[in-house]
Computed example of a mutant assay.
Amino acid sequence: MNGEVQHPLTRAAFFRKDRRSVRIAREFVGAALVDWALTARGDDVLLCVSELATNALLHGVPPGRGFAVFLTLHEGRVLRVEVHDSGGGRVRQPEASAESEHGRGLLLVAALADKWGVEERSPGKIVWTEFGCRSSGA
């Protein structure tokens, strides 16, 4: 590599508070996965995007605002997906109870992603996931 520094690949998009935004966010991420040849874990990534975008719309986006999705593919082939919102809603830890009416989406995220977490931002929060990915052609 001759001492050359590789910068991560990044993409970002903003989505309105609209139920169609979940589908559009999935399409945005799906296109990046294809462009970056990362379709091997595509279903897991897209399901997590759906869950995080839905949670942002239901619990984290005030009226008249939206949410953003940031993708970063690091040199070590780690894909980080972040969903940023501007609301005050909290992210509850996933509940394992079959009777629970909430938290099942985050159970899926916890099961599918290699790592996930929540960070504060002002205003709002960032819910992120990370996936170790290899090229689809590898």
Rank of each mutant, 00 (worst) to 15 (best):
residue 1 M to D: 05
residue 1 M to H: 12
residue 2 N to F: 12
residue 3 G to M: 11
residue 4 E to T: 15
residue 5 V to P: 01
residue 5 V to C: 04
residue 6 Q to I: 12
residue 6 Q to H: 13
residue 6 Q to P: 00
residue 7 H to T: 14
residue 9 L to P: 00
residue 9 L to Y: 11
residue 11 R to D: 13
residue 11 R to Y: 10
residue 12 A to C: 07
residue 12 A to G: 09
residue 13 A to M: 05
residue 14 F to I: 05
residue 15 F to K: 02
residue 15 F to T: 05
residue 15 F to L: 05
residue 17 K to G: 05
residue 18 D to V: 06
residue 19 R to S: 12
residue 20 R to P: 01
residue 21 S to Y: 07
residue 22 V to G: 01
residue 24 I to S: 07
residue 25 A to C: 13
residue 25 A to L: 05
residue 28 F to S: 01
residue 28 F to H: 04
residue 28 F to N: 02
residue 30 G to R: 02
residue 32 A to D: 02
residue 34 V to N: 01
residue 35 D to T: 08
residue 36 W to T: 02
residue 36 W to E: 01
residue 37 A to D: 14
residue 38 L to G: 00
residue 40 A to T: 07
residue 42 G to T: 05
residue 42 G to L: 02
residue 45 V to E: 00
residue 45 V to C: 03
residue 46 L to K: 05
residue 49 V to K: 02
residue 51 E to Q: 14
residue 52 L to G: 03
residue 54 T to D: 15
residue 55 N to S: 13
residue 56 A to F: 13
residue 56 A to H: 08
residue 56 A to N: 11
residue 57 L to Y: 07
residue 58 L to T: 10
residue 59 H to W: 14
residue 59 H to L: 11
residue 60 G to Y: 12
residue 64 G to H: 09
residue 66 G to T: 07
residue 66 G to K: 07
residue 67 F to W: 07
residue 68 A to W: 06
residue 68 A to Q: 08
residue 69 V to W: 04
residue 72 T to K: 10
residue 72 T to D: 03
residue 75 E to T: 11
residue 76 G to T: 09
residue 76 G to L: 10
residue 76 G to D: 15
residue 77 R to H: 13
residue 77 R to G: 13
residue 79 L to W: 08
residue 79 L to I: 06
residue 81 V to D: 00
residue 81 V to G: 01
residue 81 V to T: 04
residue 82 E to F: 07
residue 82 E to I: 06
residue 83 V to W: 04
residue 84 H to Y: 15
residue 85 D to A: 08
residue 85 D to P: 03
residue 85 D to F: 09
residue 86 S to H: 13
residue 87 G to A: 05
residue 88 G to N: 09
residue 88 G to I: 08
residue 89 G to S: 10
residue 91 V to G: 06
residue 91 V to D: 04
residue 91 V to K: 04
residue 92 R to P: 11
residue 92 R to Y: 13
residue 95 E to V: 15
residue 95 E to D: 15
residue 98 A to M: 12
residue 100 S to V: 13
residue 102 H to G: 07
residue 102 H to T: 14
residue 103 G to A: 09
residue 104 R to F: 15
residue 106 L to Q: 09
residue 106 L to I: 10
residue 106 L to C: 08
residue 109 V to P: 02
residue 109 V to Q: 01
residue 109 V to S: 03
residue 110 A to H: 14
residue 113 A to P: 00
residue 114 D to A: 10
residue 114 D to V: 06
residue 115 K to H: 14
residue 116 W to E: 00
residue 117 G to S: 06
residue 120 E to P: 02
residue 120 E to T: 09
residue 120 E to I: 01
residue 121 R to D: 06
residue 122 S to Y: 06
residue 122 S to F: 08
residue 123 P to K: 04
residue 126 I to V: 15
residue 126 I to C: 03
residue 127 V to S: 10
residue 127 V to R: 05
residue 127 V to F: 11
residue 131 F to P: 00
residue 132 G to S: 10
residue 132 G to C: 04
residue 134 R to Q: 13
residue 135 S to I: 02
residue 137 G to H: 11
